[in-house]
Write a protein that binds this DNA or RNA. Structure first.
Lengths: 346, 346
DNA sequence: TTGTACGCGTTATCAA
DNA sequence: TTGATAACGCGTACAA
C-alpha cells in the first residue's frame, strides 16, 4: 500500500508508454490507437488512478473551471428572495458550456480582507448588486486581471454590466395606476444603502443602491410626491412591517402601494388584510420581479416581470465570451407588465 | 506593454532578491527584514503583481481551498426552503477556518456525466440529501479519494454523516398531539423518491428518501394508521395542495395534520383557512424545522426545531478534520419541541 | 536572513 | 500515432 497517490507518470510507466501519450488518452485531444488506450486504461485501473489531478491541470491550462459569484449579503439573506436563486440557475446554465462551477463568495468584512476572493483559483467573477462593499471586491478582482461581469450594479469603466430597465419599468407601472385613477400612491422600496435601515425616505435623501434609486426615480417621474418607505430586505415580513406603517394613515392613507419586489408586495397585501382592507377594491398593490410568491394564492400580483434567469444566463455567456478572448458587451433587459388581480380602480 | 502576466520570479528579479525571498514576503511564513519586504512590495506594485497565482499555489500545496456542495435538485428548488440556506450559512462558517469557499454543484444528469464533480479542484465534498442520483456522485468522489461528508443521507461505509433524530422527533410531536386528544391525524410528507410524485402513500409503499421515511416511521410509531400524503417539494404551495386534499374529507377529516416541514405546514394552514377552519380550534397543524416562515405571522408554528446551521457547521468541521488527517465521526443532532399557537385540544 | 535547487502533476509542441 | 522536452508558477528543504 503506497501512501502516495498514483500520477499519470506512474500510469504511463506501467502501461509502457510516454506520459504525454497517457495524457492524450485521458483528454482525448489527439487520436490514439485502441490498443494503446486499453493498455493505459488498464494500468490506471490497476493503480487506482482516476484521472488527471485538476490542480495540476488547471496550472498547466491556465483554467480552473471556476466562476466566483459574489453577493454583498449573507447567503441566507441573498437566497431569501427567489429572484436571486432563479438568477443563479440561469447563471449556472450560462457557464455550463465552460464546464464551470459556481463558487459562492461571501462579501463579509471577515478578519482577512476578502480572503477567498484573492486566493481562490477563479477564471472569472460575477458580482451581484454592486454597491458599497462590493466596490472593494470589484477593485480586488480587477487588480487580479480576472474577467468580471456585474449584475444590477454600476461598475463604471469597461466592465460589462447586466441590467434591467428599472426606471422605465417602474414608470410603466406607475402609469398603470394613474390610468386607474389613483392619486395617493406610496411605495415600499428595497434597501437604500449598506446600512439597510427601515424607515421613510426623506425627499432629498441619497439612495446609494442603484436598483432602489432607479425604481424610485421611475415612480417619481409619474408621482413626484409619492411617499416612500424603505424596507430592510426583500421579504414578506418586511413588506408587512412597511405596509402597517403606510396603511395606518387613516383618511390620508394611499389607495395604491407600489412595492419594489414581489415579496414586499405580498407583505403589503397581508398588512391590508390585517387592516381590513380588500385588495384590490380598497387598495391596489403592485410588485416587481414576476416570481412565484410561495403561498400567495389566490392573489396574482400585478407586477413587472423581469427575466431573472435570462439575466443570469447572459452574465454566464458574457463571462464565457471574455474567457474566449472576445469583448463582452453590457446588456440591459426589459421588464414586461403582467396584469394580476391586485390592482383596480381607485 | 508586456502580454504575459508578471510572476513572483519577475518581482524577485526586479527587487533584486531571490524568488524564495519574495515568496516568503507574500506568505509571511518566515520573518523577513522590513527593508526587503518593502523592496519586494514596491517591485510588485510596479509590475502590477497582485500575489501568488492560486492555481500554482494549490498545485504546490496540494490544497485548493474549495469544498464542493452537491445537491440533488436544481439550485432554485434546493434554496426554496430556508432550512437549506441556513444550513449553507452554517457550512460556510464551518469551512471558514480552512479559508475555503463553497463550490455549488448541480447533480444534473447533464450531457457529460457529472463533469464538474470529476474535474473541479476540490479539497473535499459535502453531499446533501444522499439518495438516488447522489449515490453516483458519492461513488465518483470516493473514487477520487476526496474526503466526503453526507448530510441527511445514508452513505453506508465509513463516510461521516450528519443526521437528525428524525424518527424520535416526529414521534415526540405525535405524542404531543395524542396528549391533546387527537385521534384522526394525517401527515403531509416531503417527497418520497426521486420521481417526486404528489399523492397518497399506500400502506406498504416503499419510501426511498431517508428523511421522509424516518419522519413517517416516527409518526406511525404513535399513529399506525395515519393517512399520509406526499408533497412534490417543500413549499407552501405544495402544502396548500396537500391540505386541500386532506381537508376535503367532510366528517372523516383529520383533526390534526403533521407536516414534515414548516413550509408544508404553512400551506396546510392556508388550506384550513380556505376551508373555513380555524387553527388551532378546528384543526391543529404542526411543522418541522423551526425556520422563520416568511409571512406566516401571526401564526407561530408548533414545530420540531432542528439545528440547521449547526448541521452545516458540523459538516464543515468534519471536512476540516478530515483534511487535517484526523478521522471525522458521524454526528446525529437532536430536534427540540417548540410550542406555538397552531395546536390545541382535539 | 537570503539564495539554490528541485518537484508538485500535467499538457502543448514538435519531431520522429 | 507516439515520444521527448519544456514549461505552467510556486513553496520549501537545505545550505550559506
Amino acid at each position: 500500500m503506497n501512501t502516495r497517490r498514483a500520477t499519470i507518470a506512474d500510469v504511463a510507466r506501467r502501461a509502457g508508454v510516454a506520459p504525454s501519450t497517457a495524457s492524450v488518452v485521458f483528454s482525448g485531444k489527439t487520436p490514439s490507437s485502441a490498443a494503446t488506450r486499453q493498455r493505459v486504461l488498464d494500468a490506471a485501473a490497476e493503480l487506482g488512478y482516476t484521472g488527471p489531478d485538476p490542480r495540476a491541470a488547471s496550472l498547466r491550462l491556465g483554467r480552473s473551471g471556476i466562476v466566483g459569484v459574489v453577493f454583498e449579503e449573507h447567503l441566507g439573506t441573498a437566497f431569501l428572495d427567489p429572484v436571486n436563486t432563479v438568477m443563479m440557475d440561469g447563471l449556472a446554465d450560462g457557464v455550463s458550456p465552460l464546464g464551470a462551477g459556481l463558487l459562492l463568495l461571501r462579501d463579509d468584512d471577515n478578519e482577512g480582507r476578502l480572503p477567498t476572493l484573492t486566493s481562490a483559483p477563479l477564471d472569472a467573477a460575477v458580482l451581484v448588486g454592486c454597491s458599497g462593499r462590493l466596490r472593494d471586491s470589484l477593485a480586488t478582482v480587477l487588480r487580479r486581471g480576472i474577467p468580471v461581469v456585474v449584475i444590477e450594479g454600476d461598475a463604471g469603466d469597461g466592465v460589462p454590466q447586466i441590467d434591467l430597465d428599472n426606471r422605465e419599468a417602474q414608470q410603466q407601472m406607475a402609469r398603470h395606476l394613474r390610468s386607474l385613477g389613483h392619486e395617493r400612491v406610496a411605495t415600499v422600496t428595497l434597501p437604500t444603502d449598506a446600512a439597510r435601515l427601515r424607515g421613510f425616505i426623506a425627499a432629498g435623501a441619497e439612495v446609494t443602491v442603484g436598483v432602489t434609486r432607479d425604481r424610485l426615480d421611475g415612480l417619481r417621474d409619474v408621482y413626484p410626491d409619492a411617499v416612500a418607505y424603505a424596507a430592510a430586505a426583500s421579504s414578506i415580513d418586511e413588506g408587512l412591517a412597511a405596509g402597517r406603517v403606510l396603511l395606518a394613515g387613516g383618511a390620508a392613507r394611499p389607495t395604491a402601494v407600489i412595492a419594489q419586489s414581489d415579496l414586499l408586495a405580498a407583505g403589503v397585501i397581508r398588512a391590508a388584510e390585517e387592516a381590513g382592507l380588500r385588495v384590490p377594491e380598497d387598495l391596489s398593490v403592485t410588485g416587481f420581479d414576476g416570481i412565484t410568491v410561495d403561498g400567495l394564492a389566490p392573489y396574482r400580483l400585478t407586477t413587472m416581470a423581469q427575466p431573472a434567469a435570462d439575466k443570469g444566463r447572459a452574465a454566464g455567456q458574457a463571462v464565457a465570451a471574455m474567457l474566449g478572448g472576445e469583448a463582452a458587451a453590457s446588456f440591459r433587459f426589459t421588464c414586461t407588465f403582467r396584469a394580476g388581480n391586485t390592482t383596480g380602480p381607485a
